[in-house]
Design a binder for these strands. Structure first.
Length: 305
RNA sequence: GGUCGAGUAGCUCAGUCGGCAGAGCAUACGCCUGAAAAGCGUAGGGUCACCGGAUCGACGCCGGUCUCGACCA
């Protein structure tokens, strides 16, 4: 059987190692990275992209899909990732998803009908956001699509603008494109989540950030900034890249930048946990020392059933 | 040893004339379908260094002690 497996968890939880260990012992297994930043080419160290060695021993999908000078979005990712999944299915290859980006994973496990874009509508809305504030736009949304309005904070201008863009642009309520993320139907994916005690995960994150610095992250960032088109809005906000760019501009010392990377990565890891832990379909494994030794047996067990 | 300054939330610091103890960050919890490593909301948290005094009432005033820093010797 080729039910896709999902290994998910916060950054630095060891999910890639677990997936590699599983795939290494089995011939027709390939890995699909479910990660919003590993899609960017040449952003390798800071995104903890699988090493070339790992990529040689197991085929990887979902990485190096976009130039760092362009904005890659959920829809772009889902198109490519779904094509990879379909391809693996027809070849009889088992997919192992290594997932850190919750929204992207939900888009694969619970297919999403992501509405299109209406740039002119959006431009008007963004102008109004600046002029009138997010609450005013949220009031409009509450009138046009009460369900969507209820799903988001009135002060979250970015989300409110998007919901209005879709509702006005498409002529259909934003909420009519899907049930939101609070529904968890059974789906043909086996999902295993790696969970760490917070203090230990924090420690792993700090050590990994320092390891990235030792591996040449600063030079990687300098190289990307030196490219003719630089980093896109989305790529430039990747953890590590953003803070080191600030440092290179002279906004802070290197030590301060590294400390900020660690704090923000820790906060990101918590956000990942909060996203995933609501999903009742995930089988959790609490790790306290060795992710591979502790999670691989569970994964292997579930894979064979 | 002397002079001056500082000591308030986990951290950095506000605190006016003596009248309910504050902010930012951090932390915890939650939301979010084309920026998601993004964006947004809520909450908890205090021996105001310590001891004593005056006062109806002290973080604040008075006396002393301790710690840190700068300067002078």
């Amino acid at each position: 059987m080729t039910t896709p497996l999902v290994v998910l968890g916060p950054t630095a939880s060891g999910k890639s190692d677990v997936a590699m260990a599983f795939a290494a012992g089995r011939p027709s297994c390939e890995i699909l990275a479910v990660d919003a930043m590993q899609v960017y080419r040449r952003m390798d160290i800071g995104t903890a992209k699988p090493s070339l060695g790992d990529q040689r021993s197991v085929v990887h999908h979902g990485i190096d899909l976009a130039e760092p000078s362009t904005d890659s979005t959920v829809a772009d990712y889902l198109e490519a990732a779904n094509a990879s999944l379909a391809d693996m299915r027809t070849r009889g290859v088992r997919a192992i998803l290594v997932a850190g980006t919750g929204l992207y994973l939900r888009g694969l496990t619970d297919p999403m009908d992501i509405p299109g874009r209406w740039p002119e509508v959006r431009a008007d809305l963004e102008a109004r956001l600046v002029a009138d504030g997010a609450d005013a736009l949220h009031a409009d949304l509450a009138r046009l699509d009460p369900v969507a309005a209820d799903r988001m904070e009135p002060s979250n201008g970015r989300r409110v603008v998007r919901a209005l863009e879709v509702t006005i642009g498409s002529g259909r309520p934003f909420s009519s494109f899907g049930p939101g993320i609070a529904h968890y139907p059974q789906v043909p994916f086996v999902q295993v989540g790696l969970r760490w005690p917070r203090p230990q995960l924090a420690d792993r994150i700090a050590r990994r950030v320092h390891r990235m610095m030792d591996a040449g992250l600063l030079a990687e960032v300098e190289g990307l900034l030196a490219e003719p088109d630089g980093l896109s809005r989305t790529a430039s906000q990747a953890l590590g890249y953003k803070e080191l760019t600030d440092h290179l501009r002279g906004d802070c010392s290197l030590a301060e930048a590294v400390e900020t990377i660690i704090v923000r990565t820790r906060q990101f890891a918590v956000r990942q946990e909060r996203w995933f832990r609501r999903d009742p379909r995930i089988r959790w494994v609490t790790i306290d020392d060795d992710p591979v030794a502790e999670a691989l047996p569970v994964l292997t067990d579930l894979a064979d059933t």
